[in-house]
Simulated assay, not measured.
Amino acid sequence: MNYDRPALLDGLASAYVLGTLQGPARRRFERLLPELVNARLAVAAWESRLHALAQSVPQAAPSPQVWKRIESRIAPRLRTQESARRAWWSKWIQPMAGVLTGMAIGVLAVKLLPNVLFPVDQLAQQEKALSQSYVGLLLDRDGKPTVLATATRHGTRLKLKILRSIAVPATGKVLALWALPHDPAGHDLPPLYLGRIPAEGKGELMLSDGAEKLLSNVSRLGVSLESAESSSDHPSTFVLTGHCVRLW
């Protein structure tokens, strides 16, 4: 399978995050993640999008009526089985009860809570239709994901999520984010300063132009430690680097 196709990779990542990618397909995708950075970026982007949806759904405890219906379905069958072949069924009764309970809860949840279960998937599909974005995932020197950066294709805001706190010396240093562009022939161009980023939590940068114009020829991002009192057109040594990809 050609995993270099962005549409295929985005579809697999969305199904993986939503939990609808199952069986051998899910196991193949999980084996692919450590090897393909674009797959990890796509998963990180979908997790970022759907995190807000998960937070917006309130927790709901089953009502007493739900448990009574479950018991009314299970109890007669269990009593019949126990009275007919108690000795033979004793080693099977607990697994059967677990299976039946799971089935009953699933059926009742779909019937009683359709407005909680289905809008999340529908919203995810709507989000997928509007998911044209630039996504960057920057790693530390140990290869651990540290910063997630996202911007809509025609937007002017770059949203930042710090996945791991970044150590900053208390000597007037700040974290600077750089885009590393290239020309159509693939030759490196001078780094483009995007702005300061926080050491933890979340943040947002106002871009000097639209993301499409600034990032269309950018394949990598970098973060360097710079002096807070002066600006430079050239970054010092990068403490974080990572790929920048477009998801459409």
Score class of each variant (00 low, 15 high):
58 P>H: 02
59 Q>R: 11
59 Q>K: 08
59 Q>I: 08
60 A>H: 08
61 A>K: 02
62 P>T: 00
63 S>L: 03
64 P>I: 04
64 P>N: 07
64 P>V: 03
64 P>D: 09
65 Q>F: 06
65 Q>E: 13
65 Q>K: 05
66 V>N: 00
67 W>L: 08
67 W>G: 07
67 W>N: 07
69 R>E: 11
69 R>A: 11
69 R>K: 07
69 R>L: 13
70 I>Y: 00
70 I>V: 15
71 E>N: 10
71 E>I: 08
72 S>A: 15
72 S>P: 02
75 A>G: 07
75 A>L: 14
75 A>Y: 07
76 P>K: 04
77 R>H: 13
77 R>M: 14
77 R>F: 13
78 L>R: 00
79 R>D: 11
80 T>H: 08
80 T>W: 01
81 Q>H: 05
81 Q>N: 06
82 E>A: 15
83 S>A: 14
84 A>V: 13
86 R>D: 03
87 A>I: 14
87 A>G: 08
87 A>F: 13
88 W>C: 04
88 W>F: 10
88 W>V: 05
88 W>S: 03
89 W>S: 04
89 W>L: 00
89 W>V: 04
90 S>A: 14
90 S>L: 07
91 K>W: 10
91 K>C: 11
92 W>E: 09
92 W>G: 07
92 W>S: 11
93 I>K: 13
93 I>W: 08
93 I>C: 10
94 Q>S: 14
95 P>C: 06
96 M>I: 05
96 M>A: 09
96 M>S: 07
96 M>H: 09
98 G>Y: 00
98 G>V: 06
99 V>D: 12
99 V>M: 15
99 V>P: 01
100 L>A: 12
100 L>C: 08
102 G>N: 11
102 G>Q: 14
103 M>T: 08
103 M>F: 11
104 A>L: 09
104 A>H: 09
105 I>Q: 00
105 I>V: 15
105 I>C: 01
105 I>H: 04
106 G>Y: 12
106 G>W: 11
107 V>F: 12
109 A>V: 10
109 A>S: 15
110 V>H: 15
112 L>N: 04
112 L>Q: 06
113 L>E: 15
113 L>G: 07
113 L>H: 14
113 L>I: 03
113 L>C: 10
114 P>V: 00
114 P>A: 02
114 P>L: 02
114 P>G: 03
115 N>L: 14
115 N>C: 12
117 L>A: 05
117 L>D: 01
117 L>I: 13
118 F>W: 02
118 F>E: 01
118 F>T: 03
118 F>Y: 02
119 P>I: 04
119 P>M: 00
120 V>H: 12
121 D>M: 13
122 Q>N: 06
122 Q>I: 05
124 A>S: 11
124 A>P: 10
124 A>E: 05
125 Q>V: 12
125 Q>W: 13
125 Q>G: 09
126 Q>D: 14
126 Q>V: 14
127 E>G: 03
128 K>L: 12
129 A>V: 05
130 L>T: 09
131 S>T: 04
132 Q>K: 01
132 Q>Y: 03
133 S>E: 15
